[in-house]
Simulated scan of single mutants.
Amino acid sequence: MKTKFLMMISFFMVCIINAQDSLNAMDKPKFIAFSPSKATKNVNGMLIKYYDEIDQEIQPKKVNGVGLGFNGLGIFFPVLFLVNITSIDNWGINDIGSEPLPDKMNTINGMQLSIVNMEPTVTNGLELSLSSNISAPSVINGIAISPLYNFHHTTKGVAVSTFANVSQKCRGIQLALINICKDSRGIQIGFWNENGKRKMPLINWNFKNKKL
């Protein structure tokens, strides 16, 4: 009886140790990782990503380094937006109205390079892309630069593009031909600028909190 009991205890302990080892292996930062991936959680180096969604089956990732996005669909979005540039009021700003959920979003501390980012992402640093974030409640804390468009839920810092910067919430500077932000505290410089207070050409500003 004692022998069976000791065997059961030993088996139970081995299971616990194996489970702990598996968790430690998943938590251990990787130098190069790929996304989507259920196993990758922390990256100190480079994350090569295609398309992550807010999904219970996809593990949000923390990257200290560089995030490289190669979503081929992103090639078509800049063309579609350029064709519809006259209907700027209809450009998905209402689609990104929901508040971001940082605990379910990828976090990149460093640099994000992409054709287009369609993943919920918090970027703390520099973001370079053809058209930054589309159909995702993304956040930039730093500088976002695009030769075409910048789309974010929240912009804290500087957004620079050729055609348009569109955000739900802005704290800083927007610089493009067209700048739109519903909740803006900062400066907009461009051919046409809109914030929650006024619409103006060339330069627009607001430094007061939005009234509820």
Rank of each mutant, 00 (worst) to 15 (best):
192 W>D: 07
21 D>M: 15
200 M>K: 09
203 I>A: 03
29 P>A: 03
205 W>H: 02
109 N>Y: 05
35 S>T: 04
192 W>M: 13
22 S>G: 11
212 L>N: 15
82 L>I: 13
193 N>L: 02
141 N>Q: 06
184 S>R: 08
47 L>K: 00
72 G>S: 14
198 R>C: 03
177 L>K: 15
22 S>L: 15
176 A>I: 00
45 G>I: 01
104 K>D: 09
187 I>T: 01
17 I>E: 11
86 T>F: 14
86 T>D: 15
16 I>C: 10
154 T>H: 06
109 N>T: 03
115 I>Y: 06
125 G>P: 00
153 H>E: 03
117 N>K: 07
9 I>M: 15
26 M>G: 04
203 I>K: 02
58 I>T: 12
205 W>D: 00
137 P>H: 12
180 I>H: 06
112 Q>K: 10
51 Y>Q: 13
115 I>D: 01
94 N>W: 09
33 A>R: 00
122 V>H: 13
177 L>R: 12
8 M>G: 04
207 F>A: 03
90 N>C: 06
209 N>M: 08
185 R>Q: 08
172 G>F: 00
31 F>V: 14
47 L>Q: 02
97 G>D: 12
200 M>Y: 07
26 M>C: 08
55 D>T: 04
174 Q>L: 08
121 T>L: 06
62 K>T: 12
132 S>M: 09
31 F>W: 12
99 E>G: 07
85 I>R: 13
102 P>G: 04
200 M>W: 09
10 S>E: 09
151 F>G: 15
195 N>Q: 01
178 I>M: 14
9 I>E: 10
36 P>V: 00
149 Y>T: 09
34 F>Q: 05
96 I>Y: 06
17 I>D: 08
155 T>G: 10
115 I>N: 08
198 R>S: 08
144 A>Q: 12
8 M>R: 14
115 I>W: 07
161 S>N: 02
24 N>K: 15
5 F>K: 15
48 I>H: 03
199 K>G: 01
208 K>H: 10
166 V>M: 07
187 I>L: 05
67 G>H: 14
191 F>P: 03
5 F>Y: 13
168 Q>W: 07
46 M>Y: 07
158 V>Y: 06
18 N>Q: 13
55 D>P: 04
169 K>H: 08
166 V>L: 09
209 N>F: 06
106 N>P: 01
184 S>G: 09
80 L>H: 13
48 I>C: 07
8 M>I: 15
162 T>V: 07
7 M>K: 15
5 F>S: 14
120 P>T: 09
119 E>W: 04
184 S>D: 07
158 V>L: 14
11 F>G: 09
20 Q>K: 07
